Amino acid sequence: MSGICMLTEESSLSWQSASQICAASCQYASEHQLKICVWVLDRHGNPLAMQRINHAPLPSTDIARKKAYTAASFGFGTHLWQQRLADKPHLLSGLTQQPDMILFGGGLPVTYKGQMVGAVGVSGASEAQDQACAAAGIAALPELQNP
């Protein structure tokens, strides 16, 4: 294969789509009287958009970013970690000590035609509520839904 240039094509969320996801997540939270922060990252974990509802807990800003980063890094929802590592406590313990890793609900990958194009992370409410806000943000862009 010498002399052959091998390239891959990758798709990623646009900042416009990221902003729409943030707005829809916050709208859902507002309708449910939740105070949250939401981050949307591209497929490589780079920030695209962030929004914080007034009076959301201050730590939620960083926690939401870490949830999105974890989902972007591994390609699955952060709520699945406990189940995946239930019989591997040593691995669970080790991963919780890694910077920017969050192993509880509220981070979801964003996919388009089966390819991960980004991730959203929400923090400020319960795990289930954070995850619902993230899902509502993604649902605002129906083309991101897998068939």
Rank of each mutant, 00 (worst) to 15 (best):
S14Q: 12
K113W: 05
E31N: 12
P99G: 08
L34I: 12
S60W: 07
W15R: 12
G77I: 00
S25V: 08
V38I: 09
S60Q: 03
F74E: 01
C26W: 08
F74A: 10
G77R: 02
A18C: 11
G114Y: 06
Q20H: 13
A71W: 01
A86M: 08
A72V: 09
D87R: 07
S93R: 11
L92D: 01
A86Q: 09
G75C: 08
V38K: 00
Q98G: 00
K88N: 12
N54P: 02
S25G: 09
W15G: 13
L103E: 06
Q115L: 09
T111L: 13
S19C: 15
H32Q: 14
A72M: 08
D42N: 11
V38M: 07
Q33F: 12
T78K: 00
Q51K: 07
R52I: 10
L95E: 11
R43E: 05
A18Y: 06
C22D: 01
S60V: 01
Q16I: 15
K88L: 12
G105K: 01
V117L: 10
T111I: 11
L41I: 05
I63M: 07
I36S: 00
Y28T: 05
G105W: 01
D62V: 13
G45T: 03
S25D: 06
R84I: 02
G94I: 01
Q20V: 14
A64G: 01
C22S: 10
A71F: 04
P57S: 15
Q97N: 14
Q27K: 10
